[in-house]
Nucleic acid binder design. Sequence first.
DNA 1: TCTTTCTGCTCAAGCGCTTTAGCTCGGGCT
DNA 2: AGCCCGAGCTAAAGCGCTTGAGCAGAAAGA
Lengths: 354, 354
Amino acid sequence: MPAKRPAARRPTMKDIARRAGVSESAVSFALNDRPGVSEITRDRVRRVAEQLGWRPSTAARALSGEGAATVGLVLARPAHTLGVDSFFLQLVSGIQEVLARRHLGLLFQVAQDVDDECAVYRRWWAEHRVDGVLVVDPRTDDPRPDLLDELGLPAVVIGGAPDQSHPGLSSVWADDAGAMAALVDGLHALGHRRIAHIAGLPGLAHTERRISALRAEAERRGLTEVRSVPTDYSDAEGAAVTRRVLEAPAPPTALIYDNDVMAVAGVAAAAELGFSVPADVSVVAWEDSALCRMVKPWLSALSRDSVEFGRTAATELTALLDGGPARTVRVPVPRLIERDSTGPARSPGTGRPA
Amino acid sequence: MPAKRPAARRPTMKDIARRAGVSESAVSFALNDRPGVSEITRDRVRRVAEQLGWRPSTAARALSGEGAATVGLVLARPAHTLGVDSFFLQLVSGIQEVLARRHLGLLFQVAQDVDDECAVYRRWWAEHRVDGVLVVDPRTDDPRPDLLDELGLPAVVIGGAPDQSHPGLSSVWADDAGAMAALVDGLHALGHRRIAHIAGLPGLAHTERRISALRAEAERRGLTEVRSVPTDYSDAEGAAVTRRVLEAPAPPTALIYDNDVMAVAGVAAAAELGFSVPADVSVVAWEDSALCRMVKPWLSALSRDSVEFGRTAATELTALLDGGPARTVRVPVPRLIERDSTGPARSPGTGRPA
DNA sequence: TCTTTCTGCTCAAGCGCTTTAGCTCGGGCT
DNA sequence: AGCCCGAGCTAAAGCGCTTGAGCAGAAAGA
């Protein structure tokens, strides 16, 4: 029998009260900066607490109505899509930065799909586990806002467009439509008239925003050969779609990819087909990362600060937890980093390489 | 004033007791499959609970000594190193898979460094937040096992070599030394005699294991021009080190990279220097991912199942939480996926490209 | 001097659950 | 008939914290 040394006992408020010679309530008042104790006592209590290494038990706190000091984040993307994307860990590290300052924990869960995700919210709520949640990958026709409303769980939606119908939710978003417009503007100025947009998962709010922004821009300019093709964000589909669009009769002269992974896979696919980048076809990735500088030519990319995005979202959530009003905040529009994969459109002809 | 609909109230055991016409204790017994109630009552109680959508409050549970139903995971790598690596999200998704089955939550935190990480453990322990933790990136001379021992916090170390001095900790690890030996074996058979190992962060246990395994293999075979160079895992350092070793007088004919990111950056750097892969120099990445198939030539890589790794680790932790003994389990050694970046060594000469 | 009003503190209840001790039956034993 | 016993339940305490009510004593007003 492994004679286990008994784990050290956690000090409680009772211990502090005894050592400081006051009642438990006095300790509570003192440590929570509430009126009701003299400065002298407060100091003494604080010192004793410090010395004992006391920390409030979140369980007890939560039980007496203070909330769980925890926020939740669930990720509902297919497992294989998870890994390659650098966005999430960045986002999470930004989130943590602000949560940590307030000693808030982050409860993390990966789910199968949105229904599963909803079940997780319900469970978290019923189990008293979280005080609020961060919702990522908002969708068109999303069941989550309604649910969170019903549960009364404070939440901030990350990446969703402002949503009038859920005044309880905060929203942090980037102006994809504006970015898309600027992007098309730039490509148009370079002479590009045929553009393909290799989009992300259909149904995701920002995917749809980008698609419709592109369509709007095309119509405004009278461009008829502009299209969006949704994918699952994977390198495989990125490459496949690239091949498909480039093999068409009048292939596009510019490709916009909704993430870095597909863009990289796309240039490789293009190269195999004999298209050289950017001479035959320009490429821009929506999402910058080290990846974009790992391939030749270096990829032009729309860059945003995902860490800051996370910070902003977490800040909004803490504001909500503090009883503040729900807000909608827009983070800076991603800016185009021009590298070597974009250039003037090939002059007329079929657009196919020789 | 936004007339907020009051959030639905969570049902408690008292509600169930009232509706089922029994005492709270009977409810507790019934729902926890404890003897003390008849099957009839048990069924009735269960039905009522179900119907009310009851879930035990983790706070209350934790407070009455049952544990927090949560395990912790802290990541202490520099923020910029976080993103590109596909390993962690895979690992986490494996972990979740088994935790979710048991309704265990995963509390996630990113820390600055190991000291910070230790502080997090202390806090979690004092706050009663977690029942156990998963420790990643074990180091040589690691303060964490001692701390966890002291706190009596069940833990499983992921990726550490078996550690006799901490019988309380479980350990899940891969045989890097064996893998390295097999790898060198293969390269040697292809005629490679000069090998450079672009290693990961120094101080990380598995980095050191790989380095010393390589050294041992080299000595065994009498190879003198074999070396390991530690890096920070980043594409930048990967490329820089690659340039440095290839510009040396008698450059290596084979490069082993400790992750996929550096390998990709490395081939790009090699190409710039006029080295062609695999004709002039063979490349293998320790860690397979989509990345390895995004560059030309496709990279040969050591592949392991990170999701399964996570599952195994989580399983060990739950076993520990159930009061089981600490164990050391070895996951399958990663296997080499041969793609296009490895080939026979260039025949004698300086080894430099023409 | 006696009342009022603070200030600084203590008491005790309560949050939702577990758990131990105890209570009440009905049935089997002698 | 008297007794014991176990099955099936209830009562109540306790986990660590917050909080509203209450209470002593000093300072201030009459």
